[in-house]
């Protein structure tokens, strides 16, 4: 059910990622100011953008869950936030490496986007502990959806507040809006972002398919083992939603 089209999607993703990385290293020119190190930009920024969109998507599925009560929406929301957290770790680490390379420090508070991203990450890092500490699965899904919606609305507000707080914005070679980027850099950046988005969607569908298959398998096992002594409740508790 969730696995449909996954193969095609995976192939497209592989092609796009390989293409994007090839463009990064062979097509896009070296940045006039920052030089070779600016190549991290094509990895770091798409990671961050896709993670943020994933967080917001988690909120949107949270709304859908609250409106319909369909547990699959809860699963979608959970997987989206879960994957976004992984991408966010990647964005923070690559951003830190970039900062070390070009400014000589592992962390800088002058970069509003980086700081807001850390705050958003800290907030979403509570998502799994929150789920984990609620036992009733129906309530867990409901509360997680509420959290996802609150946090989803928080993302843009937070970015606005932090950006305003930093009156001194670092002299940026590249504005992420792409206004001042040379066209070949912009195309490379766009392809990288699309590739990262495709990777996200592929992994999202992949994980959904995997989780869904596991649930059905477990349900089957329970039905088969019904009436026998061999039945044991799921020994491992997890924060993941159950169907």
């Amino acid at each position: 059910m969730f696995g449909r089209g996954l193969k095609t999607l995976s192939l497209i993703t592989v092609a796009l990622i390989v293409g994007a990385f090839a463009m990064v290293f062979f097509y896009a020119p070296n940045d006039a100011d920052q030089g070779f190190i600016q190549k991290i930009f094509y990895l770091h920024v798409p990671l961050a953008i896709v993670a943020l969109f994933g967080f917001v998507a988690g909120g949107v599925y949270g709304i859908k869950y609250l409106r319909t009560g369909d547990r699959l929406h809860d699963l979608r929301s959970y997987v989206a936030i879960h994957l976004s957290l992984i991408l966010a770790v990647g964005a923070l680490v690559t951003g830190s490496i970039w900062a070390r390379g070009s400014w000589g420090v592992w962390w800088t508070w002058d970069e509003p986007t980086l700081v807001s991203f850390l705050i958003v990450f800290l907030l979403y890092a509570c998502y799994q502990p929150l789920r984990f500490s609620i036992e009733d699965p129906e309530r867990q899904a409901r509360y997680a959806a509420v959290f996802a919606i609150i946090a989803g609305a928080f993302v843009p507000l937070n970015f606005m507040a932090v950006r305003m707080a930093e009156s001194l914005v670092h002299p940026r070679v590249l504005s992420t809006t792409g206004g001042s980027m040379p066209s070949d850099m912009r195309i490379t950046f766009l392809v990288s972002t699309v590739a990262m988005a495709c990777l996200f969607i592929t992994l999202w569908k992949y994980e959904l398919a995997s989780k869904h298959a596991t649930f059905r398998l477990r349900a089957l096992k329970r039905r088969l083992a019904d009436g026998e002594d061999a039945w044991t409740p799921n020994p491992r508790r997890s924060a993941a939603p159950t169907l």
Binding site: D31, D33, Q34, G35, F36, I37, K39, I40, L43, H44, V93, T94, I97, W98, R100, G101, S102, W103
Partner: peptide
């Protein structure tokens, strides 16, 4: 900010 030489920058890019 002066651009880092390629061998310096390469390390960071590879790490990322």
């Amino acid at each position: 900010m002066p651009a880092l030489p390629l061998d310096e920058a390469g390390k960071y890019v590879a790490a990322a």
